[in-house]
Design a binder for these strands. Structure first.
Lengths: 224, 224
DNA sequence: TCAAAAGTGTTAGATTTACACCCATGA
DNA sequence: TCATGGGTGTAAATCTAACACTTTTGA
């Protein structure tokens, strides 16, 4: 009998809070549970951690399984471990949030998994402690997006300044002053204006910008 | 066979980063491991999560076991789950940091457990991923202590402004301007000057202050 | 008497905020 | 022609950072 074997083992799962940004709103992917307990309840997408993969690998696997996308921006939210958090068995779950550009996600695949984009401000009651997970994920994401240029992961590689501003407004839950916002953007040389115009959002058209990661690494000063 | 039982279970432990402040330095409790694998290596103090306790309860139990103290300020750092992080078996560990006033910790009890206060800037190589845990704990604690009045948990209930300043300097790793620091303290009405003088730190003596939690809850504006 | 820590305000500079109008275009 | 979103600068207010001397007292 080893030192370890006198202790109990438990199931460990990962649950993913997948953020997207569409039509000016911050959204999260949720779906109806396909299994008992809690069959039919709204839930985050998750899966069990296998014995031969790290918890990060597990989260990446679950994300890939759901979205078909790899190398998503992903951060751990934390471990959730009330004894009775899962009505079936003792399961400790580690929550992760990820950011995706909704247009990168094939709608067919989304439907196959039966998940939907729901406005983060209109999330129904979810299975287990998933509402709590989302709350903490939002808080962490909000902090992170203000000090690191991760917001671009929620946008197409080319975006207008109005889109970028709306994204930050959605994340922070408050309107921003257009001129002050653009003034700050202009100071960040790694947010580059292209010669391209996007005319889908207005008649006049707006310049498209891009995030230059290389330039950011040269001079990583970000604050929004 | 339930839905759960087709998946593997793993051991889950908690590891505690216990911060203290003494002689102007931020310190952490570490000790030599008493068991294999890794016997004799420097390590954080931890324990396995039992099947009938939440992970928070497990952390509190481990903290109480080591220090004899309850109701410590404690926050989760995150889950660490590389497959081979523990050389013996697959163990996922959830790190917590806690703040204690070193004078509340009986030195006898500390010695019984064979743990020592080590300057956070002089931490030796630790077992497994414990150095990484401390690094992340410091970062989270630094963020937290700037926006919430948790620093008082590292000080006696009566403290001088010089002690408080030294604490913040130790946490942030940089010197602060004495007058600017005191100006900010004066604006926080919940940091109350008592009529008492502490003469242990200087010949002249310094006023002792106390944190008034009730007053803070009335007007929770904290920034340091 | 002097070394050592306690205590105390002002000012320049930097940052942040508030704010309003013209432009280009498609419908 | 007009409704819609795109684009632009300035000034006041606030916040931050820099800075030096006097006080008290035990050794």
């Amino acid at each position: 009998m080893t030192y370890y074997s006198q202790h109990a083992k438990v199931w460990v799962s990962v649950d993913c809070i997948i953020f997207g940004f569409d039509e000016g709103k911050l959204r999260v992917l949720i779906g109806r549970r396909h299994m008992d307990p809690g069959r039919g309840e709204w839930s985050l997408y998750g899966g069990f951690v296998r014995s031969d993969e790290s918890i990060n690998d597990a989260a990446n696997r679950v994300l890939f399984d759901l979205t078909g996308l790899r190398n998503l921006y992903m951060r751990q939210v934390g471990a959730f471990g009330s004894v009775d958090r899962d009505p079936g068995e003792r399961v400790i779950s580690i929550a992760y949030y990820a950011l995706i550009n909704v247009k990168d996600y094939e709608d067919e695949l989304r439907k196959e998994h039966g998940v939907e984009w729901v406005n983060v401000d209109e999330i129904p009651e979810l299975y287990s402690d998933h509402n709590e997970m989302i709350k903490k994920a939002r808080k962490l994401m909000r902090q992170k997006i203000s000090s690191e240029p991760i917001g671009f992961r929620l946008l197409p590689s080319l975006f207008t300044l109005s889109q970028l501003q709306k994204l930050y407004e959605a994340v922070h839950g408050e309107d921003l002053d257009k001129r002050n916002f653009r003034k700050r953007i202009k100071e960040m040389d790694f947010i580059e204006k292209t010669g391209l115009i996007d005319k889908t959002g207005s008649k006049r058209g707006a310049y498209l910008y891009r995030f230059n990661k290389r330039a950011y690494n040269q001079d990583p000063n970000f604050k929004l």
